[in-house]
């Protein structure tokens, strides 16, 4: 197993006896690949991420992680108004001794990471005052200074507008392709997974799941089972580039819109 490789097998978790949230899950991700987790609300995506992160013990099965894992939580509120630089600096926690303080070299690294995500000018801006997209980028910068091999993101595009969703997806893609990080993210948007992921894992409930290459897994029949909603794969050309994406078919019973 190389650094950055990640796998789990026979993975299952239940909070109550014989009430399995998921069971017998199996998947393998190599360094530089992106895995997307998809499933409806309450299917156990966050539970699975916590297990992969090592913050929760699985009921059965095994997880093999080779490398340092960094986590990007859903948009969150910090209790105190740290600056963007303070937030990024916290990524150095593993490199700073328990009773030590970060050095000026650590601060330099944090500032460079902010530069890489294009937020160097906002280094001293309070985290509370930043937009949702900027906060996510700050947390990405924190993962960069942590020198992580594997990045786990919990619904990174939730509560973001389309522009910021696109920025975050670009960053996920960049971290995997250019920085050679292994990325695992959960999402409610199959088209996001289709746009950037190499592999997908659909959490269909209990021991029912579909995992594999995006082309094989994100197919209309699987997605209908997952969301009980038709999703169509559409292809078109945009700016001389062939685009293929997934479109949910929302159909209200009656259309009350004015003609």
């Amino acid at each position: 197993m190389k650094t950055g490789d990640f796998s789990f097998s026979g993975l299952g978790h239940s909070y109550l006896p014989d009430k399995w949230i998921f069971r017998n899950y199996q998947s393998q991700v190599s360094r530089g690949q992106i895995l997307a987790l998809l499933g409806p609300n309450g299917c156990g995506k966050t539970t699975l991420l916590k297990i992969l992160l090592g913050a929760l013990a699985q009921t059965e099965g095994s997880v093999s992680v080779n490398g340092h894992v960094a986590f990007v939580p859903q948009l969150f509120q910090v209790a105190f108004d740290y600056s963007a630089l303070d937030m990024v600096l916290m990524g150095r926690a593993k490199k700073v001794g328990l009773f030590s303080q970060p050095t000026s070299a650590d601060e330099e690294m944090a500032l460079k990471a902010l530069e890489r995500v294009g937020l160097a000018s906002l280094a001293n801006r309070p985290f509370h005052e930043m937009s949702g997209g900027q906060r996510q980028l700050v947390i990405f910068a924190r993962a960069l200074v942590a020198e992580a091999d594997i990045l786990i993101l919990d619904e990174p595009t939730s509560a973001l507008d389309l522009k910021n969703q696109n920025a975050i997806l670009e960053w996920i893609d960049r971290l995997a392709r250019r920085e050679n990080l292994t990325v695992i993210f959960s999402t409610h948007h199959p088209h996001h997974a289709y746009a950037v992921a190499d592999q997908a894992l659909l959490m269909l409930g209990g021991s029912d799941y579909a995992a594999g290459q995006v082309d094989e897994v994100l197919i209309e029949s699987n997605l209908f089972r997952l969301y009980n909603l038709p999703l169509k794969k559409v292809s078109f050309e945009f700016e001389e580039q062939a685009i293929e994406t997934l479109v949910p078919v929302f159909r209200p019973k009656e259309d009350h819109r004015m003609a």
């Binding site: 992160l53 939580p73 969150f76 303070d86 593993k94 303080q101 942590a146």
Partner: peptide
């Protein structure tokens, strides 16, 4: 005083602090 920077990490919440290696 020695642990004061760790309080920054702890104030992020358990899950986030654990993911940072605390």
């Amino acid at each position: 005083m020695a642990l004061r920077w760790r309080l920054n990490l702890l104030s992020l919440g358990d899950l986030d602090a654990k993911s940072l290696g605390l």
